[in-house]
């Protein structure tokens, strides 16, 4: 029951993040939105792990371990994106992606 609830929540988070990624013009907002989108994808995967609960375990440990790896890689991508953005702002004096 609660797994279904969080599954729907994950689906909604993906939608919210995707909307922000497209609509928000500021690169830092895009990075935030991308992380919301990623949180939704991770939550969906976590719900699949939860559905695999068996024996004495509350969830399937294999997808849970993959989630940890995923979170780390997602942080690495965010840190790299922030570094690129700060360099762009330092170089051009502006924080935007189009070149008008």
């Amino acid at each position: 029951m609660s797994a279904d609830l969080y599954g729907l929540c994950g689906a909604a988070l993906v939608g919210i993040g995707l909307y922000g990624l497209i609509v928000q013009p500021h690169p830092l907002r895009k990075i935030l939105a991308f992380n919301i989108l990623g949180g939704g994808v991770f939550l969906l995967f976590g719900v699949f792990a939860r559905r695999g609960a068996a024996l004495s375990l509350p969830g399937d440990p294999v997808p849970q371990a993959l989630l940890i790896t995923g979170l780390v890689v997602s942080f690495a991508a965010t840190a790299l994106a922030v570094a690129l953005l700060l360099r762009l702002a330092a170089e051009t004096g502006r924080a935007r992606l189009d070149d008008e």
Binding site: L43, A49, P58
Partner: peptide, 9 residues
Amino acid sequence: VGALDVALT
């Protein structure tokens, strides 16, 4: 959702 290790991360 029963993922304590993920919660810590």
